[in-house]
């Protein structure tokens, strides 16, 4: 058996996603069984498949376990302050409209401290691709109740069970005005990669929620097993329903998970609306913004 392992090391070629990752920083800090690495893997494969120019791509992430993604990808990446990934990304997009800006952050960062930014970016329809890794808890700070924690689950701040109603993120962003809303779990790797590729084709606020296991804090405290058990649960309990009304896709602790592409619509994005308005009110005096060049 040990012979086999040594052979495998010798045989190891180059991982197809290696050129998108900072391999010198591996192994990463995420726990065994955590799904964030799997989502990064799907994201990297989506970038390869959609043949996006990596030089025109910027990845912005906030604070938290998922916030670490910015440090592990070999792209122009930005690890911002807590909850402010979307404002930084908005600034990037406005200053350089040709940039593809991806916001890669967790549920706590995007929907709790950054909840206000999330709904306003969706309302303005700023051309951002938001990937929200939802592990149903504040993981890096020690397993406190997050706005996405489903009812009756035990957390470090609710040792006798959570009683607050939780956020249904696809419903929230659809109501706020997002043009593309999808949800997958870490079990649906190929579907997730395809969805990320589709989001790159859309102009406007795209939101992809990925349900991910947190074996160290959420699953362990709720006696739901480890990462692999959660993946089996996703496999068993998830139902693909494209176009499902987002009001009906709320999450429960052990119930069914509705996944799929919920919303795919077209709406003028922020910059188009700005140009239209200024052309209308200023007429000849409106001058198109020159491309910004950093020297």
């Amino acid at each position: 058996m040990s012979d086999r392992l040594i052979t495998d090391i010798v045989n190891a070629g180059v991982n197809p996603v290696d050129h998108i990752l900072r391999t010198d920083r591996m192994p990463h800090i995420w726990c065994p069984g955590c799904g964030i690495g799997t989502t990064v893997n799907s994201f990297a494969r989506a970038l390869i498949d959609s043949k996006i120019d990596l030089g025109s791509l910027a990845l912005v992430s906030g604070i938290g376990c998922t916030g670490r993604v910015a440090g592990y990808v070999k792209l122009d990446s930005f690890h911002t302050t807590h909850g402010r990934a979307i404002p930084f990304a908005t600034g990037l997009k406005l200053a350089n409209p040709k940039l593809n800006v991806v916001v890669y952050s967790g549920d706590g960062d995007l929907s709790a401290i950054g909840g206000n930014h999330l709904i306003h970016a969706a309302r303005r329809n700023i051309d951002l691709k938001v990937i929200c890794v939802n592990n149903l808890i504040y993981a890096m700070t020690g397993g406190q109740t997050a706005p996405t924690t489903p009812g009756h689950s035990t957390t470090s701040t609710n040792p006798y069970g959570t009683f607050e109603p939780s956020f249904n993120l696809p419903h929230l962003v659809e109501a706020a005005g997002a043009v593309y809303v999808a949800r997958w779990t870490t079990f649906h790797v190929r579907q997730l990669a395809r969805s990320i590729g589709e989001a790159f084709q859309k102009k406007g606020f795209s939101f992809i929620e990925v349900i991910s296991p947190c074996p160290t804090l959420y699953q362990r405290r709720n006696k739901l097993g480890d990462g692999l058990d959660t993946m089996k649960y996703y496999k068993e309990k998830s139902k693909v329903r494209h176009g499902a009304p987002t009001g009906e896709v709320g999450l429960t602790m052990t119930g069914e998970i509705i996944v799929g592409k919920f919303v795919d619509r077209d709406r003028p994005d922020y910059q188009t609306m700005m140009r239209t308005q200024y052309c209308e009110s200023l007429g000849e005096r409106f001058v198109e913004q020159e491309e910004m060049v950093c020297s």
């Binding site: 996603v17 799904g35 964030i36 690495g37 799997t38 893997n41």
Partner: peptide, 14 residues
């Protein structure tokens, strides 16, 4: 098929 590579959270298999 490289499905193992897609599932691996640690980029350790392909």
């Amino acid at each position: 098929c490289d499905l193992c590579g897609m599932y691996c959270p640690d980029f350790a298999i392909f």
